[in-house]
Write a protein that binds this DNA or RNA. Sequence first.
DNA 1: CGACCAATGCAACGCTTGATGAATTCTGCG
DNA 2: CGCAGAATTCATCAAGCGTTGCATTGGTCG
Lengths: 206, 206
Amino acid sequence: MPPRGRRPVGSSDTRQEILTAAGELFAERGFERTTMRAVAARADVDPALIHHYFVNKEGLLAAALVLPVDPAALLAGLDKDPEHAGEALVGRLLGVWEGDPDARHRMVGLLRVGLSHERAAAGLRDLLGRTILIALSRVVAQDHRSLRAALVGSQMGGLLLGRYVLGIPGVRDATPGQLVVAIGPVLQHYLTGPVGGAVAPATASR
Amino acid sequence: MPPRGRRPVGSSDTRQEILTAAGELFAERGFERTTMRAVAARADVDPALIHHYFVNKEGLLAAALVLPVDPAALLAGLDKDPEHAGEALVGRLLGVWEGDPDARHRMVGLLRVGLSHERAAAGLRDLLGRTILIALSRVVAQDHRSLRAALVGSQMGGLLLGRYVLGIPGVRDATPGQLVVAIGPVLQHYLTGPVGGAVAPATASR
DNA sequence: CGACCAATGCAACGCTTGATGAATTCTGCG
DNA sequence: CGCAGAATTCATCAAGCGTTGCATTGGTCG
């Protein structure tokens, strides 16, 4: 129905609309089940236009892959009360996920995509490494920073997985309060407790 | 090349070969990227034969979805030394995953498929619930059994995710020994520690 | 031996998918 | 104004997908 050529200027930021649509669909359905045509339809645009902007489906994925929450904001002020940083962290994360379904879906989508697509896994790894690790640096104990951050991430990832994706009854039906009590001390342990004494000797090459 | 009709009896268990091939491929590539033709090729069989046995691609998935390890064996004897069950459990799991790449791939595949496919998520949920929860019952404290089991599962799932799927450096490069020291006490906490006092009041309906 | 069913292979259908090349319209610069 | 280039749509392609109908062979039971 729309005329064929270029739109009058400033009528819309098409590129951004495509990215938004793609982000939503990748999150909902994962990489494979998201079709270019579906993205185009949601962005109200011709499929060929996506190729014009992002070359590939992979290019589109790479461009649409962004963290749905700001880790810095999530961690702000946690170092004021280092003794209870663990509980506070679980509480905040659960607060976001419970209160902001959109952010939750995007986060689940990141997992979904990262798990289904090797290239996305790499992107996700970098994304998490560059943001979360840095943001955690101020809260975490001095030694084994990378390991500590990853352990925190693994526990929260596991929770996300069990509660929102797989829907394992035990964690799906727990209240946020219960989870804070149960998991808070764990994150606290990862943040400041002992995690494996000496650095691993270089038994493995590479 | 092979003749057209039925094979002489007992010459091979074709059905099982299809299931094996399907299990491997689903684990490697997830549901969508596993094609019937690929399964057929790996099982050295005609694609139509898969439909003959399993009707659907979904039917094939349902039939191929099995736990690659025996949870009972994994947990056997843990109740002899309840104080160190957490460490022992991490150690055993890491032992299996490090020492038996095939079992690891299958486990990762379960995650992959469960994450990519709603129907598989349900199957996986039941599978885990029926086996792991029951097997854990003897090790875990009396109260909040379901929650405790799910917490243990979420932490181990998160580890699997971070170490073997996403490859987050902090946990990817840690030695099994380090991980046992770091995560053991956490599982111990989930198994026998306090996890949220009273059962949640029925604030939420349904 | 004949009837019937299970197991297997062949060929094909209809559909969807990601991608491409050309045509059209608008913008911005000289 | 004229013209290069960006933005947009259209029509179409080749490949791959899950699935189906049919033919053929072997086993089983009367």
